[in-house]
Design a protein around this nucleic acid. Structure first.
Lengths: 147, 147
DNA sequence: GCCATATTGAGATTGAGTATCAAATGAGCA
DNA sequence: TGCTCATTTGATACTCAATCTCAATATGGC
């Protein structure tokens, strides 16, 4: 199958597949391309709908692969639903707007040190953490102020 | 139905039910007692097993009630499974040991201010957040050191 | 092109949680 | 104490996300 689009995520994913001795299949490329076309965050189910010719199990398998390889990250919504979004590399947290639903990354923020220090006073060794922030994005906040 | 045990959680729950014009039923008391007897954290399903004579739907309904009233809080495990644990009142975070599974509360820790400040540099107004920490509790950490 | 094996897809299955609705129960009141 | 009626309960069906199974297919090395 010829490579049509040249989205960096698709390219990088295919390169990484080769690197790790996974096979480069047409289906994987399709999934990666669909992921790249999703806005902000999306559910695995939405991806399935965007890829009607690809089996549900395969979509889930490839999403898992993309997460393991760091191309996608999980976003936990306030109602407990699991979404995914294209990942900026490296550790970061999500700012999820509960008004418009958009998600952005919280940049330049290192809690690990603070968390470790706090937890160590109780003898606890922190190895990992999850942080999700909910509130209003800039646009929604200014709309609220304007009205 | 006579009140047999006098666990504070059970007592407080029953008092709050009255306060909020919910009915004090034998089933609610049973559920509260079972919750009080669970160690650390537990799933709704485990509660169902501990209460074979109570319907699954009723267990879920009462767990939801206990959460709304602040007697229970949700604990998100690293694999995404939802557990519950008896809540210390007030905002707090969880330290979840991935070795023995125990959970403890992270006390005296206020991130809200720091989080708000960081997020506001991106124009985001934080209204809520979730934080879960994973690692080794004191016991598991010292066992690892000893071996 | 051939082969061994990784990958895929249809469909069954699991598991958590919710909806339905008739029957049971609790609480106020006579 | 018994009546009455709204609340609560429980059996069951259902939904939804996600995983498992396994035969069919596609891939990459030779």
């Amino acid at each position: 199958m010829p490579t049509k689009a040249h989205h960096p995520l698709v390219e990088d994913f295919l390169a990484r597949l080769e690197e790790k001795d996974y096979r480069h299949t047409g289906t994987r490329e399709e999934v990666a391309r669909a992921v790249a076309q999703q806005g902000s965050h999306f559910t695995a189910e939405a991806l399935c709908e965007a890829l009607p010719r690809v089996g549900r199990a395969t979509v889930y398998r490839n999403v898992k692969l993309l997460v393991e390889m760091g191309f996608l990250c999980r976003v936990l919504m306030e109602d407990g639903e699991l979404h995914y979004q294209v990942s900026h590399k490296g550790h970061h947290h999500h700012l999820i707007c509960t008004y418009c639903g958009q998600s952005q990354d919280l940049l330049n923020c290192d809690f690990q040190g603070l968390l470790k220090e706090k937890a160590s006073t109780q003898g606890f060794e922190v190895e990992g953490h999850t942080v999700e922030l909910y509130g209003r994005c800039r646009t929604c906040a200014s709309e609220a102020t304007a009205s």
